[in-house]
Design a protein around this nucleic acid. Structure first.
Lengths: 213, 213
DNA sequence: ACCTGAACACCGTTCAAGT
DNA sequence: ACCTGAACACCGTTCAAGT
């Protein structure tokens, strides 16, 4: 059967579901497809490219947001959007990590991020809604990634399972709700930057590429 | 000069500051120390172990929280704690990513996480304060990681620099403040779990380790 | 157009053997 | 106790050459 981009992504998803991100090497993927590693590079630019495709497919399972005359709705919609994203991420092993890496490499707006922005409280300016959606995305990815690696550590017998999944879900929702409440009150309490002696020791000198000896 | 654990961490920090996480391989580190790669494993258990040490050192530069008779204080303290953590992370290239990875591998409580918990609004239960501190940590690590990779993409000429650092800082603070506001109102609006048809397609089958053919 | 074979320049980790 | 030398089992990517 002829190799194709879609076929490659399918096989990669299978590896991801069964064994996780650590097992997803280009060489192992090629072996699973019965092909030489170099063959993959005809259909896919790089591994980073592949990870972006995988991230899109993982998030594609989230229910489409029915755009009601472009109006931003109440808090419950945003909460549901966050839960839908979490469901999509947890359906694949290391799903949150894959999406995190893909988003870091390709910082374009992820589809559910747009949905999040559109469901945020309507008292925010567009810029604030974008900041809020990004912030919530960071929380979701971080929280779910922690859940998943924790779960894998337990399966590996390294950590003890002290918490039920209901408990984990409650913690997740607690964070989402807290954040959404805060965003709802954002307009009344504007963000004034106070003392920032903390600024700009960030510009670290960049020398050459790669240190040798 | 005799090799030591501290010496290794020093050299690793130097590589990190100058060239970032991608250049921090055990082999490159050994070369910089004028030693064979295997020698490192006498002083350090693994690369993961080393990353945890690095994460601790990166965060060690945050000002110590002067514990005032154990009382949780107001929102300004938590906001300052978040800013201090951001400053520490941005002082090292890929600092946020290093701490993220280390925290994923070794999910023990990071020092500043404790400080965050102690500075959260006092209306929360201890469990809620822990959830809140975790959530805020996820936001901080995600946001700063995005800042840093974005900055590196700009230095590499891949992306355009459309935003000033003040703008970035404002966005960061916006997220922190929103979250803290939401936590402040957490007790009055308890987190009730509504419909969760989303639960538990998370248990993905685990077969053997490593797929072959 | 699509894939193989083979190479290039790397990884983390282990471990007998040396000192 | 501490380190070398050398190996093991991998990586991502490229590219002439084949079909």
């Amino acid at each position: 059967m002829a190799l194709s981009r879609e076929h490659i992504v399918d096989a990669a998803m299978t590896i991801l579901r069964s064994y996780g991100l650590a097992s997803l090497s280009m060489r192992n993927l090629a072996k699973n497809l019965g092909v030489q590693p170099g063959a993959l590079y005809w259909h896919v630019k790089s591994k980073q490219d592949l990870l972006v495709l995988l991230a899109d497919r993982i998030l594609a399972t989230t229910p489409a947001w029915t755009d009601q005359v472009g109006a931003r709705s109440d808090r419950a919609d945003a909460r549901q959007a966050a839960l839908d994203i979490r469901t999509a991420l947890t359906s694949v092993k290391d799903g949150a990590e894959v999406v995190s890496v893909a988003q870091a490499l390709n910082p374009r707006q992820l589809a559910p991020l747009q949905r999040l922005r559109d469901t945020l409280p309507s008292n925010l300016t567009l810029r604030q809604a974008e900041w809020g959606a990004r912030a919530l995305t960071h929380y979701i990815l971080g929280a779910v990634a922690e859940e998943q690696t924790h779960a894998e550590l337990i399966l590996a017998g390294v950590a003890a399972s002290e918490e039920s999944t209901a408990y984990t879900t409650e913690a997740f929702i607690f964070g989402v709700d807290a954040f959404l409440r805060g965003l709802g009150a954002a307009a009344s309490a504007p963000c004034t930057v106070i003392d920032l002696a903390t600024e700009d020791q960030r510009a670290v000198p960049r020398k050459q590429l790669h240190a040798d000896s």
